[in-house]
Design a binder for these strands. Sequence first.
DNA 1: TTACCCATTTTTGTACACAATTTACGCAAC
DNA 2: GTTGCGTAAATTGTGTACAAAAATGGGTAA
Lengths: 236, 236
Amino acid sequence: MVTRTESVTRRLREAVLGGAYVPGGRLNEMALAEAMQVSRTPVRAALGALFAEGLLDYEPNCGYVVRRLSLDEAVHIYTVRATLEGLAARLAAEIGLTDAARERFRETLDEMERLVAGDSWGDAEQQRWGDLNIAFHGQIIAACGNGYLANSIQRTRTLPLLTESGVRTFLAERAVVWWDRVAYRRSQDDHLDLGEAILARHGARAEAVMREHVERAGRLIGRKLANRSEAALALS
Amino acid sequence: MVTRTESVTRRLREAVLGGAYVPGGRLNEMALAEAMQVSRTPVRAALGALFAEGLLDYEPNCGYVVRRLSLDEAVHIYTVRATLEGLAARLAAEIGLTDAARERFRETLDEMERLVAGDSWGDAEQQRWGDLNIAFHGQIIAACGNGYLANSIQRTRTLPLLTESGVRTFLAERAVVWWDRVAYRRSQDDHLDLGEAILARHGARAEAVMREHVERAGRLIGRKLANRSEAALALS
DNA sequence: TTACCCATTTTTGTACACAATTTACGCAAC
DNA sequence: GTTGCGTAAATTGTGTACAAAAATGGGTAA
């Protein structure tokens, strides 16, 4: 049996990340309670938890609002994420993967390569490649043997980022759906380098490649957002 | 006017970090409420906040307990902290300090050097050096221009760590009080290197020195704790 | 003794009422 | 128009009662 607080926290997290609420808009406790069919008590607990996760802003006596990340903040978070994932790659390489992990790692890389190098490149392929990308990074993080590091990385990956058009997206791996095919190829080349470095247990190289890999993704997203913002400004 | 929740959170945080409660022991909500002269409501909010900060463990329907970090976890956290502070040092060097910050930075370094190189080295000197050490690291973090990074570093610095003797200490800068004078000299040499690299805007060097500097501190603490644990085991 | 079960007690989870504070709105003065 | 003020409404903060779950303890059986 799960508590209502847990249930509400999960549902509210998904709603916020799913873009159900306007960023900057207040989250009314009573309204949420009625929508979730519970009292204000578990709602308040959930809001507090999401505030601690960085999804919401909070001001005493004023309530909670969906946090809105500026472009600068998003870039800052990507910088930290790049460094942390770089560390994870180095540790994974130095520790070395288990035989089973090696096998899965190779399979993931191979399937991504087949997709990117293949003839067809539609939504299905991009979706699948995105899933594999998440799995690939997840396998490295799982292999780094440092739970605190794994949590720290996770914290950098699920923050809401609002674009000017009102469409919410994430600072997560899904951001890659914005890229063109050339960027996927470039990203996959990084993955191949990374896989080689990690399997060869070259920690320093794995770290350098991973850091640059994630930082590039951050730069791409930053540029996209900046362009959109400029476009929006030019129109208004 | 501050809310009771804020007040209780602050007081409870200080109590936990101050070692007022036995790690692993349950934090009874009613008892805390009576001790703090409030109802259970703000106490529960405070417990949730401290759980999110990583100071407490929590199990639904079982309550909160003071988190007890294992030696491995402490080392893991130090590894992350070393990498993050290394990043901060690099960013600070690349951005460059303002004139005022440069001045304060040099003053801090000079006073630390005078203390370590001086004739007397008692509690007062160690205390003062510890304060300056915190200030030194704080100045670098403040200069890195990345608020998310600053917060991430802060999170690695205030976690309770229980030694076998029942004496609580912290994963904070204060850990240096354990070292002997040779270690202070070594640490100060790092600081001088760091200062030089940052003022000369050598980002890569600043990062490497800072990372090694913090990792060394982690190793020293890890060794101390391991020795103590062995001693305690030998006695029992 | 040890293990297990059940009733009791304790503790946590939730709803709700009320207090304290903020926000909204209308009105008047400039 | 807009600025300021004051009251009313809405919203958050807190206390408290009760429900639900877990810890406790005693007794029984192997």
